[in-house]
Simulated assay, not measured.
Amino acid sequence: MTTSTSSRTAPSTSESPARDASWLLRTVLRTDSLSTAAFAVLMLVESALTATPLGMPRELAVVSGCGMVCGAVAFWLLARMPVLPPRLVAAAIALNAVCGIAFAVLSCTGLVQLTGFGRVFLGAGALIVAVFADLEYLGLRRIRRSAQARVRTA
């Protein structure tokens, strides 16, 4: 199911329930985009330093940072789409889940020799990404329930 909304219009009482339901998902996607961009900048800056405070190999930090820039752009564009395609939203949720698991594995294992700060940094990243995935899933469910309710009343 899809919902037709515009992020540039203020909600009114005449809007459909599905339009109101997309507000949470759009807000979370935009916030996710901004925090992902900030995290990407930190990873890219960290990779340029002579002594890396995270202990992460430069190549991994650059690849991660570039991937996060792409993810940030994708989340922003998705949030601005007039219709939120459920499959793309599900892909964003899955991407967050995979990244959260990867950050957790890196922070909790010796796979990469991180500093103590690096472990805390990636552990916090894993937690933040998991929260975004959960909130995006909640937003998607709200849109689907709202669309189903609209179909039942039509």
Results as ranks from 00 to 15, higher is better:
Val69Asp: 08
Val69Asn: 10
Cys70Glu: 14
Gly71Asp: 09
Ala74Trp: 10
Trp76Pro: 00
Leu77Gln: 11
Leu78Met: 07
Leu78Phe: 06
Ala79Gly: 09
Ala79Cys: 09
Ala79Ser: 15
Ala79Leu: 04
Ala79His: 06
Met81Cys: 12
Pro82Phe: 06
Pro82Thr: 12
Pro82Ile: 02
Val83His: 10
Val83Lys: 12
Leu84Cys: 02
Pro86Ile: 03
Pro86Asn: 06
Arg87Pro: 00
Arg87Cys: 05
Leu88Trp: 10
Leu88Cys: 06
Val89Trp: 02
Val89Met: 01
Ala90Gln: 10
Ala91Tyr: 02
Ala91Val: 08
Ala91Gly: 09
Ala92Glu: 02
Ala92Cys: 08
Ala92Pro: 04
Ile93Met: 03
Ala94Val: 12
Ala94Asp: 10
Leu95Thr: 07
Leu95Pro: 00
Leu95Ala: 13
Leu95Gln: 03
Asn96Pro: 00
Asn96Asp: 10
Ala97Trp: 03
Ala97Asp: 05
Val98Cys: 12
Cys99Tyr: 06
Cys99Gly: 08
Gly100Ile: 05
Ile101Cys: 09
Ile101Met: 09
Ile101Val: 15
Ala102Arg: 02
Ala102His: 03
Phe103Leu: 11
Phe103Ile: 00
Leu106Asp: 07
Leu106Thr: 13
Leu106Trp: 09
Ser107Gln: 02
Cys108Glu: 10
Cys108Tyr: 08
Thr109Ala: 06
Gly110Trp: 04
Gly110Ser: 11
Leu111Asp: 04
Val112Ala: 11
Gln113His: 12
Gln113Val: 13
Leu114Tyr: 01
Leu114Ser: 01
Thr115Trp: 07
Gly116Arg: 13
Phe117Gly: 05
Phe117His: 11
Phe117Asn: 04
Phe117Ala: 13
Phe117Pro: 00
Phe117Arg: 08
Gly118Gln: 05
Gly118His: 05
Gly118Phe: 04
Gly118Pro: 03
Arg119His: 11
Arg119Ile: 02
Arg119Gly: 07
Arg119Phe: 05
Val120His: 12
Val120Arg: 14
Val120Met: 15
Phe121Asn: 01
Leu122His: 00
Leu122Trp: 01
Leu122Gly: 00
Leu122Tyr: 03
Gly123Gln: 07
Gly123Ala: 15
Ala124Glu: 11
Ala124Asp: 11
Gly125Cys: 11
Gly125Pro: 08
Gly125Thr: 10
Ala126Leu: 10
Leu127Arg: 07
Ile128Glu: 12
Ile128Gln: 13
Ile128Arg: 14
Ile128Ala: 15
Val129Gln: 07
Val129Thr: 14
Val129Gly: 01
Ala130Asp: 05
Ala130Glu: 05
Ala130Asn: 06
Val131Trp: 08
Val131Glu: 06
Val131Asn: 03
Phe132Val: 01
Ala133Tyr: 04
Asp134Gln: 14
Asp134Thr: 14
Asp134Trp: 15
Leu135Tyr: 07
Leu135Ile: 03
Tyr137Trp: 15
Tyr137Leu: 14
Tyr137Val: 04
Leu138Asn: 09
Leu138Lys: 13
Gly139Asn: 08
Gly139Met: 09
Gly139Ala: 12
Gly139Arg: 06
Leu140Ile: 00
Leu140Lys: 02
Leu140Tyr: 03
Arg141Leu: 15
Arg141Ile: 13
Arg141Met: 14
Arg141Ala: 14
Arg142Tyr: 05
Ile143Trp: 04
Ile143Thr: 09
Arg145Cys: 07
Arg145Gln: 12
Ser146Phe: 02
Ala147Met: 15
Ala147Val: 15
Gln148Glu: 15
Gln148Ala: 15
Ala149Pro: 01
Ala149Phe: 08
Ala149Met: 09
Ala149Asp: 11
